[in-house]
Protein backbone atom coordinates (compact mmCIF):
# COMPACT_ATOMS: atom_id res chain seq x y z
CA UNK A 1 0.00 0.00 0.00
CA UNK A 2 3.03 2.26 0.08
CA UNK A 3 3.15 3.09 -3.59
CA UNK A 4 0.12 4.44 -5.43
CA UNK A 5 -0.89 2.00 -8.08
CA UNK A 6 -0.45 3.36 -11.53
CA UNK A 7 -3.58 2.85 -13.60
CA UNK A 8 -2.52 0.10 -15.97
CA UNK A 9 -3.96 1.79 -19.06
CA UNK A 10 -1.57 4.70 -18.74
CA UNK A 11 1.31 2.39 -17.85
CA UNK A 12 1.54 1.15 -21.42
CA UNK A 13 3.23 3.79 -23.57
CA UNK A 14 0.72 5.58 -25.80
CA UNK A 15 1.47 4.87 -29.42
CA UNK A 16 0.27 6.89 -32.42
CA UNK A 17 -3.36 7.88 -33.07
CA UNK A 18 -6.08 7.72 -30.38
CA UNK A 19 -7.38 4.20 -30.11
CA UNK A 20 -10.80 2.87 -29.20
CA UNK A 21 -11.76 1.61 -25.78
CA UNK A 22 -11.60 -2.07 -26.77
CA UNK A 23 -8.21 -1.67 -28.40
CA UNK A 24 -6.85 -0.04 -25.26
CA UNK A 25 -8.41 -2.74 -23.10
CA UNK A 26 -6.87 -5.59 -25.10
CA UNK A 27 -3.45 -3.93 -24.95
CA UNK A 28 -3.51 -3.33 -21.20
CA UNK A 29 -1.55 -5.27 -18.58
CA UNK A 30 -4.75 -6.17 -16.79
CA UNK A 31 -6.11 -7.92 -19.85
CA UNK A 32 -2.80 -9.69 -20.35
CA UNK A 33 -2.72 -10.96 -16.80
CA UNK A 34 -6.39 -11.99 -17.00
CA UNK A 35 -6.01 -13.93 -20.24
CA UNK A 36 -2.99 -15.82 -18.88
CA UNK A 37 -4.79 -17.19 -15.82
CA UNK A 38 -7.22 -20.04 -16.60
CA UNK A 39 -8.54 -20.10 -13.03
CA UNK A 40 -9.42 -16.43 -13.26
CA UNK A 41 -11.15 -16.86 -16.60
CA UNK A 42 -13.28 -19.69 -15.22
CA UNK A 43 -14.04 -17.67 -12.07
CA UNK A 44 -15.11 -14.70 -14.21
CA UNK A 45 -17.36 -16.86 -16.37
CA UNK A 46 -18.97 -18.54 -13.35
CA UNK A 47 -19.51 -15.22 -11.57
CA UNK A 48 -20.94 -13.64 -14.74
CA UNK A 49 -23.27 -16.58 -15.34
CA UNK A 50 -24.56 -16.45 -11.76
CA UNK A 51 -24.99 -12.68 -11.83
CA UNK A 52 -26.76 -12.74 -15.20
CA UNK A 53 -29.00 -15.61 -14.10
CA UNK A 54 -29.95 -13.68 -11.00
CA UNK A 55 -30.41 -10.32 -12.72
CA UNK A 56 -32.54 -11.73 -15.53
CA UNK A 57 -34.50 -14.12 -13.28
CA UNK A 58 -37.94 -12.55 -13.95
CA UNK A 59 -37.45 -13.07 -17.71
CA UNK A 60 -35.52 -16.31 -18.05
CA UNK A 61 -36.51 -18.37 -14.99
CA UNK A 62 -38.66 -21.33 -16.08
CA UNK A 63 -41.24 -20.74 -13.32
CA UNK A 64 -42.31 -17.93 -11.02
CA UNK A 65 -41.85 -19.67 -7.67
CA UNK A 66 -43.46 -16.99 -5.51
CA UNK A 67 -46.68 -16.75 -7.44
CA UNK A 68 -49.07 -19.25 -5.80
CA UNK A 69 -51.15 -19.41 -8.98
CA UNK A 70 -48.42 -21.13 -10.97
CA UNK A 71 -47.13 -23.48 -8.25
CA UNK A 72 -48.43 -27.05 -8.27
CA UNK A 73 -48.57 -28.25 -4.68
CA UNK A 74 -48.92 -31.80 -6.03
CA UNK A 75 -45.44 -31.54 -7.55
CA UNK A 76 -43.73 -31.19 -4.14
CA UNK A 77 -40.53 -33.17 -3.54
CA UNK A 78 -39.99 -34.06 -7.22
CA UNK A 79 -36.38 -35.22 -7.59
CA UNK A 80 -34.18 -33.45 -10.17
CA UNK A 81 -35.05 -34.37 -13.72
CA UNK A 82 -37.90 -36.69 -12.77
CA UNK A 83 -41.41 -36.41 -14.15
CA UNK A 84 -43.71 -34.74 -11.64
CA UNK A 85 -47.35 -35.69 -11.04
CA UNK A 86 -48.55 -32.82 -13.21
CA UNK A 87 -46.43 -34.03 -16.10
CA UNK A 88 -43.86 -31.24 -15.93
CA UNK A 89 -40.26 -32.15 -15.29
CA UNK A 90 -38.01 -29.89 -13.24
CA UNK A 91 -34.29 -29.71 -13.99
CA UNK A 92 -33.23 -29.32 -10.34
CA UNK A 93 -36.35 -30.80 -8.74
CA UNK A 94 -38.88 -29.05 -6.53
CA UNK A 95 -39.08 -28.16 -2.84
CA UNK A 96 -41.74 -29.18 -0.33
CA UNK A 97 -44.30 -26.77 -1.79
CA UNK A 98 -43.72 -27.80 -5.38
CA UNK A 99 -41.68 -24.74 -6.31
CA UNK A 100 -39.10 -25.23 -9.05
CA UNK A 101 -35.65 -25.24 -7.41
CA UNK A 102 -33.88 -23.67 -10.39
CA UNK A 103 -36.20 -20.66 -10.39
CA UNK A 104 -36.13 -20.41 -6.59
CA UNK A 105 -32.34 -20.33 -6.68
CA UNK A 106 -32.30 -17.70 -9.42
CA UNK A 107 -34.62 -15.47 -7.43
CA UNK A 108 -32.69 -16.28 -4.25
CA UNK A 109 -29.33 -15.28 -5.78
CA UNK A 110 -31.04 -12.07 -6.85
CA UNK A 111 -31.71 -11.15 -3.23
CA UNK A 112 -28.25 -12.34 -2.10
CA UNK A 113 -26.43 -10.42 -4.82
CA UNK A 114 -28.52 -7.28 -4.36
CA UNK A 115 -27.81 -7.20 -0.63
CA UNK A 116 -24.15 -8.06 -1.24
CA UNK A 117 -23.59 -5.32 -3.84
CA UNK A 118 -25.59 -2.68 -1.97
CA UNK A 119 -23.87 -3.42 1.35
CA UNK A 120 -20.42 -3.31 -0.27
CA UNK A 121 -21.28 -0.05 -2.04
CA UNK A 122 -22.46 1.43 1.25
CA UNK A 123 -19.37 0.21 3.15
CA UNK A 124 -17.15 1.50 0.36
CA UNK A 125 -18.73 4.97 0.26
CA UNK A 126 -18.60 5.32 4.02
CA UNK A 127 -15.08 3.91 4.25
CA UNK A 128 -13.73 6.14 1.47
CA UNK A 129 -15.32 9.27 2.93
CA UNK A 130 -14.01 8.59 6.43
CA UNK A 131 -10.63 7.39 5.16
CA UNK A 132 -10.13 10.50 3.02
CA UNK A 133 -11.11 12.73 5.92
CA UNK A 134 -8.78 10.95 8.32
CA UNK A 135 -5.87 10.85 5.88
CA UNK A 136 -6.19 14.38 4.56
CA UNK A 137 -7.14 16.26 7.70
CA UNK A 138 -5.05 14.26 10.17
CA UNK A 139 -5.11 15.40 13.78
CA UNK A 140 -8.10 14.75 15.96
CA UNK A 141 -10.41 13.53 13.18
CA UNK A 142 -7.77 10.99 12.19
CA UNK A 143 -7.31 9.69 15.73
CA UNK A 144 -11.03 9.45 16.36
CA UNK A 145 -11.92 7.66 13.09
CA UNK A 146 -9.02 5.24 13.28
CA UNK A 147 -9.71 4.43 16.94
CA UNK A 148 -13.30 3.53 16.08
CA UNK A 149 -12.04 1.42 13.15
CA UNK A 150 -9.54 -0.37 15.42
CA UNK A 151 -12.15 -1.23 18.01
CA UNK A 152 -14.60 -2.36 15.36
CA UNK A 153 -12.04 -4.51 13.57
CA UNK A 154 -11.29 -6.36 16.80
CA UNK A 155 -14.91 -7.54 16.91
CA UNK A 156 -16.07 -10.05 14.29
CA UNK A 157 -18.20 -8.52 11.54
CA UNK A 158 -21.01 -11.03 11.97
CA UNK A 159 -21.44 -10.07 15.63
CA UNK A 160 -21.64 -6.37 14.79
CA UNK A 161 -24.12 -7.01 11.99
CA UNK A 162 -26.28 -9.12 14.31
CA UNK A 163 -26.27 -6.41 16.93
CA UNK A 164 -27.14 -3.64 14.48
CA UNK A 165 -29.87 -5.80 13.02
CA UNK A 166 -31.31 -6.56 16.45
CA UNK A 167 -31.29 -2.90 17.47
CA UNK A 168 -32.87 -1.79 14.21
CA UNK A 169 -35.62 -4.38 14.51
CA UNK A 170 -36.32 -3.03 18.00
CA UNK A 171 -36.64 0.52 16.69
CA UNK A 172 -38.81 -0.23 13.65
CA UNK A 173 -42.51 -0.94 14.28
CA UNK A 174 -43.38 -4.59 13.67
CA UNK A 175 -45.79 -3.81 10.83
CA UNK A 176 -43.03 -2.32 8.68
CA UNK A 177 -40.30 -4.81 9.49
CA UNK A 178 -40.97 -6.97 6.48
CA UNK A 179 -40.53 -4.15 3.96
CA UNK A 180 -37.51 -2.64 5.68
CA UNK A 181 -35.69 -5.90 6.48
CA UNK A 182 -33.60 -5.91 3.31
CA UNK A 183 -32.48 -2.31 3.87
CA UNK A 184 -31.72 -2.94 7.53
CA UNK A 185 -29.64 -5.92 6.44
CA UNK A 186 -27.72 -3.78 3.93
CA UNK A 187 -27.13 -1.18 6.63
CA UNK A 188 -25.97 -3.78 9.14
CA UNK A 189 -23.58 -5.57 6.78
CA UNK A 190 -22.31 -2.28 5.35
CA UNK A 191 -21.64 -0.81 8.78
CA UNK A 192 -19.72 -3.93 9.80
CA UNK A 193 -17.37 -3.75 6.80
CA UNK A 194 -16.42 -0.09 6.34
CA UNK A 195 -13.28 -0.18 8.49
CA UNK A 196 -11.04 -2.02 5.99
CA UNK A 197 -11.84 0.59 3.33
CA UNK A 198 -11.18 3.46 5.72
CA UNK A 199 -7.80 2.02 6.77
CA UNK A 200 -6.54 1.52 3.24
CA UNK A 201 -7.81 4.83 1.91
CA UNK A 202 -6.32 6.67 4.87
CA UNK A 203 -2.91 5.10 4.28
CA UNK A 204 -2.85 5.90 0.58
CA UNK A 205 -4.22 9.41 1.13
CA UNK A 206 -1.46 10.22 3.60
CA UNK A 207 1.10 9.30 0.94
CA UNK A 208 -0.70 11.21 -1.81
CA UNK A 209 -1.09 14.32 0.35
CA UNK A 210 2.69 14.82 0.35
CA UNK A 211 2.89 14.88 -3.42
CA UNK A 212 3.48 17.91 -5.59
CA UNK A 213 0.21 17.81 -7.46
CA UNK A 214 -1.70 18.21 -4.20
CA UNK A 215 0.47 21.15 -3.16
CA UNK A 216 -0.05 22.67 -6.60
CA UNK A 217 -3.80 22.32 -6.32
CA UNK A 218 -3.69 23.86 -2.85
CA UNK A 219 -1.59 26.78 -4.13
CA UNK A 220 -4.12 27.33 -6.90
CA UNK A 221 -6.64 27.88 -4.15
CA UNK A 222 -8.92 24.94 -4.76
CA UNK A 223 -11.00 24.15 -1.73
CA UNK A 224 -10.06 21.01 0.24
CA UNK A 225 -13.23 19.14 -0.73
CA UNK A 226 -12.43 19.56 -4.44
CA UNK A 227 -8.79 18.55 -3.95
CA UNK A 228 -9.81 15.42 -2.09
CA UNK A 229 -12.56 14.33 -4.43
CA UNK A 230 -11.15 15.40 -7.79
CA UNK A 231 -7.42 14.86 -7.30
CA UNK A 232 -6.72 12.48 -4.44
CA UNK A 233 -9.68 10.13 -4.82
CA UNK A 234 -8.84 8.82 -8.32
CA UNK A 235 -5.38 7.89 -7.10
CA UNK A 236 -6.56 5.81 -4.15
CA UNK A 237 -9.12 3.80 -6.11
CA UNK A 238 -6.79 0.93 -7.12
CA UNK A 239 -6.49 -0.69 -3.69
CA UNK A 240 -10.14 0.15 -3.00
CA UNK A 241 -11.20 -1.96 -5.99
CA UNK A 242 -9.36 -4.99 -4.58
CA UNK A 243 -10.91 -4.61 -1.15
CA UNK A 244 -14.33 -4.07 -2.70
CA UNK A 245 -14.14 -7.42 -4.51
CA UNK A 246 -13.08 -9.33 -1.40
CA UNK A 247 -15.61 -7.39 0.63
CA UNK A 248 -18.34 -8.41 -1.82
CA UNK A 249 -17.58 -12.09 -1.20
CA UNK A 250 -17.60 -11.43 2.55
CA UNK A 251 -20.90 -9.54 2.33
CA UNK A 252 -22.55 -12.35 0.38
CA UNK A 253 -21.41 -14.90 2.97
CA UNK A 254 -22.45 -12.60 5.82
CA UNK A 255 -25.91 -12.16 4.33
CA UNK A 256 -26.23 -15.91 3.81
CA UNK A 257 -25.17 -16.54 7.40
CA UNK A 258 -27.62 -14.00 8.83
CA UNK A 259 -30.46 -15.34 6.70
CA UNK A 260 -29.48 -18.87 7.66
CA UNK A 261 -29.69 -17.86 11.32
CA UNK A 262 -33.17 -16.57 10.58
CA UNK A 263 -32.50 -12.88 11.26
CA UNK A 264 -31.97 -11.74 7.67
CA UNK A 265 -34.43 -11.25 4.85
CA UNK A 266 -38.13 -12.05 5.48
CA UNK A 267 -39.38 -15.51 4.41
CA UNK A 268 -41.37 -13.94 1.59
CA UNK A 269 -38.13 -12.93 -0.14
CA UNK A 270 -35.83 -15.91 0.45
CA UNK A 271 -32.13 -15.47 -0.28
CA UNK A 272 -29.65 -18.31 -0.73
CA UNK A 273 -29.13 -18.45 3.04
CA UNK A 274 -32.87 -18.79 3.68
CA UNK A 275 -33.09 -21.56 1.08
CA UNK A 276 -30.29 -23.45 2.82
CA UNK A 277 -32.04 -22.97 6.14
CA UNK A 278 -35.24 -24.44 4.67
CA UNK A 279 -33.34 -27.22 2.89
CA UNK A 280 -31.64 -28.38 6.06
CA UNK A 281 -35.05 -29.57 7.33
CA UNK A 282 -35.18 -32.18 4.58
CA UNK A 283 -31.60 -33.39 4.99
CA UNK A 284 -32.65 -36.37 7.10
CA UNK A 285 -35.57 -37.41 4.92
CA UNK A 286 -33.49 -37.88 1.78
CA UNK A 287 -34.62 -34.84 -0.27
CA UNK A 288 -31.01 -33.74 -0.67
CA UNK A 289 -31.57 -31.48 -3.68
CA UNK A 290 -33.56 -28.91 -1.71
CA UNK A 291 -30.40 -28.19 0.30
CA UNK A 292 -27.62 -29.13 -2.11
CA UNK A 293 -28.35 -26.82 -5.05
CA UNK A 294 -28.65 -23.56 -3.10
CA UNK A 295 -25.53 -24.56 -1.13
CA UNK A 296 -23.54 -25.24 -4.30
CA UNK A 297 -24.71 -21.94 -5.80
CA UNK A 298 -23.57 -20.06 -2.71
CA UNK A 299 -20.19 -21.82 -2.71
CA UNK A 300 -19.65 -21.11 -6.41
CA UNK A 301 -20.59 -17.48 -5.95
CA UNK A 302 -18.36 -16.90 -2.92
CA UNK A 303 -15.45 -18.86 -4.37
CA UNK A 304 -15.50 -17.19 -7.79
CA UNK A 305 -15.71 -13.68 -6.35
CA UNK A 306 -12.91 -14.53 -3.89
CA UNK A 307 -10.69 -15.84 -6.70
CA UNK A 308 -11.37 -12.68 -8.72
CA UNK A 309 -10.35 -10.59 -5.72
CA UNK A 310 -7.13 -12.58 -5.31
CA UNK A 311 -6.28 -12.16 -8.96
CA UNK A 312 -7.07 -8.44 -8.92
CA UNK A 313 -4.83 -7.91 -5.92
CA UNK A 314 -1.91 -9.51 -7.71
CA UNK A 315 -2.65 -7.86 -11.06
CA UNK A 316 -2.83 -4.35 -9.59
CA UNK A 317 0.28 -4.79 -7.47
CA UNK A 318 3.17 -3.25 -9.42
CA UNK A 319 5.73 -5.03 -7.26
CA UNK A 320 4.57 -8.45 -8.43
CA UNK A 321 4.53 -7.39 -12.07
CA UNK A 322 7.48 -8.52 -14.11
Amino acid sequence: MTDPTIPPETATPETSAPRGFWQRLFDSDIWFSWSRSPVTIIATLVALALILGAALAPWIAPHTPFNPATVELMDGFTPPGAQALSGTSYLLGTDDQGRDMLSTIMYGSRVSLFVGFAATLFAMTLGIALGLTAGYRGGFADTLIMRIADVQLSFPAILIALLIFGVAQGLIPASQQEQTAVWVLILAIGLSNWAQFARTVRGTTMVERQKDYVSAARLLGRNPLAIVTRHVLPNVLGPVLVIATISLALAIIEEATLSYLGVGVPPTQPSLGTLIRIGQRFLFSGEWWILAFPAVTLILLALSVNLLGDWLRDALNPRLRK
Binding site: L283, F284, L298, A302
Partner: peptide, 20 residues
Protein backbone atom coordinates in the same frame (compact mmCIF):
# COMPACT_ATOMS: atom_id res chain seq x y z
CA UNK B 1 -11.41 -23.80 0.17
CA UNK B 2 -11.96 -23.86 3.95
CA UNK B 3 -11.48 -20.10 4.20
CA UNK B 4 -14.03 -19.26 1.51
CA UNK B 5 -16.72 -21.65 2.75
CA UNK B 6 -19.22 -20.21 5.23
CA UNK B 7 -19.10 -21.90 8.65
CA UNK B 8 -22.69 -23.05 8.55
CA UNK B 9 -22.18 -24.89 5.25
CA UNK B 10 -19.21 -26.76 6.70
CA UNK B 11 -21.40 -27.75 9.64
CA UNK B 12 -24.21 -28.93 7.39
CA UNK B 13 -21.73 -30.86 5.24
CA UNK B 14 -20.33 -32.63 8.31
CA UNK B 15 -23.85 -33.44 9.51
CA UNK B 16 -24.66 -34.87 6.11
CA UNK B 17 -21.56 -37.09 5.99
CA UNK B 18 -21.25 -38.25 9.61
CA UNK B 19 -24.81 -38.09 10.90
CA UNK B 20 -27.02 -38.80 7.89
Amino acid sequence: VGVSLPTFLIGIGLIYIFAV
